[in-house]
């Protein structure tokens, strides 16, 4: 019967997507198996990345990825929450709509354009003004040690922060907006000010959703490639200083994949991709669980 056939066809396309994800996992695992067999778990803890001597360790990239992403999260979270509170609790409707639209547009700007701006505008600005100022303000602090190159972890963290603000704003805004009005009115009726209401009634209620928004933002930062590749300096070293160049998992794949001349090299790069893949899936799943929990209206004990 035609109806059954139609159901089957649409079902097959659904299956196709499931198969696609399975195929992706399989391909990545298959193609990185050589590297996995050769280096074992030490791949993740070795600091040497020396293609000329067939030595591959991913730790510098993991370090660069984690530090730049966490830095981005540290910068982006307070700003994003400020925007979300402003949008939900304070701004008049029309202004809120305009700001929401502008923030969404920010998310639409392609990564490579932010990278272009990063290279030619932000990095020179950091090198000339911000980094020397940091060094004067915190002399001898290892976090701001070394020569101010402009490119490095700080630049990467800033550009990533710009990129994840829209994600965190959008989700935490929705989560806060879903807090029942009764919760707010209860606080206001006690004579609480607007901020006290937000802090005591809205934020605790929205907490797990906000954490979900942060995790999703972090997931996005971890996998971000182009803008980071353009401003992080691309040097596989582990340095405590935010001013030093570094390298991320995504950027090493972007930069070296086409130059990888032998199988083990390619395999090692794909293994880095696999790790990235696994981490971002976990982050996404966790984030969605957290956001769904708030959406279902479960207040979270403080």
């Amino acid at each position: 019967m035609a109806d059954t056939a139609f159901r089957r066809v649409s079902f097959v396309f659904g299956v196709l997507i499931v198969a696609l994800v399975a195929l992706m996992v399989y391909e990545m695992a298959q193609q990185s198996s050589l590297s996995m067999r050769t280096f074992g778990p030490a791949f993740l803890t070795s600091t040497t990345w020396d293609p000329q001597h067939r030595a591959f360790g991913a730790l510098p990239f993991i370090y660069g990825t984690v530090v730049s992403s966490v830095l981005a999260l540290v910068i982006a979270t307070p700003i994003s929450l400020g925007v979300a509170i402003f949008l939900v609790e304070m701004s008049p409707n029309w202004l809120g709509n305009v700001i929401s639209a502008v923030v969404e547009l920010l998310a639409a700007i392609p990564s490579v354009l932010l990278g272009l701006w990063g290279i030619f505008v932000m990095v020179p600005f950091l090198q000339r003004y911000v980094e020397p100022a940091l060094q004067t303000a915190f002399p001898g602090v290892p976090l701001f040690d070394g020569a101010p190159y402009g490119v490095g972890l700080l630049a990467a963290g800033l550009i990533l922060a710009i990129m994840i603000v829209p994600t965190i704003v959008a989700i935490s805004r929705d989560v806060m907006a879903s807090v029942p009005i009764a919760q707010r009115e209860g606080m206001l009726a006690l004579g609480a000010t607007k901020w006290e209401t937000t802090r005591r009634a809205v934020l605790p209620y929205a907490r797990s959703g906000i954490v979900g928004a942060m995790v999703l933002g972090l997931g996005r930062a971890l996998g971000e490639t182009m803008a980071v590749t353009m401003v992080i300096g691309n040097r596989p070293v582990i340095s405590p200083s935010l001013l030093d160049p570094s390298y991320t998992m995504a950027s090493v794949i972007a930069n070296e994949f086409t130059e990888a001349t032998y199988e083990l090299y390619v395999s090692a790069l794909i293994e880095i991709g696999l790790v990235l893949f696994a981490v971002t899936i976990l982050m996404n799943a966790a984030a969605r669980l957290l956001v769904a929990r708030t959406a279902r209206g479960m207040p979270v004990a403080p």
Binding site: E27, M28, T225, I253, A254, G273, N284
Partner: peptide, 10 residues
């Protein structure tokens, strides 16, 4: 949520 670079590898 998969990083686009990973899609490139596949």
């Amino acid at each position: 949520g998969i990083p686009s670079i990973v899609v490139g590898i596949v």
